[in-house]
Amino acid sequence: MVDSIFIGLSVITIGSAILSLESRELLYGGIALAVSMLGIAGYFIILDAPFVAMFQIAVYVGAVAVLIIFTVMLVRAPNTITKKETRKRKIAGILLGLAFLILAGSILGNSAATQLKFNDTVPIFDVQAIGKELLTYYSPVLLVLALTLAAAVIGALALARREDIEERNEPTN
């Protein structure tokens, strides 16, 4: 039962990951990316991390992917598949990807990694455990994260501000 869920999720996640890069229309690519992120959230549920899965759906699928799709619609580039994407570059990309796959796969495939096992006797970490960690050991990190988000907001606002409107109001000296 679970295994079939795992295989199904893998097909959806990896398939839509490939689709997000290879689709003809950039917009479909963005949607495929969102589906791939949903697949990752599915893995999180299988791995007994429902809170993180919710967070993934809310932030990644709900905010990041939607933001990306909006940007795709704003920057309707005339040619989404460029001539610059030469065959040589494509072969180099496939070779590099395969090289990493084989390297990491061989490290994973050796006997030490396959000894890693999931433990079935431990309790599941629920929201309480995560919240406790967040408010004790990681509390300074949480405060710094607030500053990071503030920095992102200030930076994005500074970038989005229209210069031409502002200049009309400023005295020239």
Binding site: V2, D3, F6, S10, T13, I14, A17, I18, L21, L26, G29, G30, Y43, I46, L47, I68, T71, V72, V75, A77, T80, T82, K84, E85, R89, K90, A92, G93, I94, L96, G97, L98, F100, L101, A104, G105, L108, A113, T114, L116, K117, F118
Partner: peptide, 28 residues
């Protein structure tokens, strides 16, 4: 499932990402 199953999925996704970084020239 065992941890390595999930790690293999992650490795495959990272390889796809590397392929995209090398091949694609569209900023998005």
């Amino acid at each position: 499932n065992q941890p390595t199953d999930f790690l293999y999925i992650a490795v495959i996704l990272i390889s796809i990402g590397i392929y995209g970084l090398v091949v694609k020239r569209n900023a998005l």
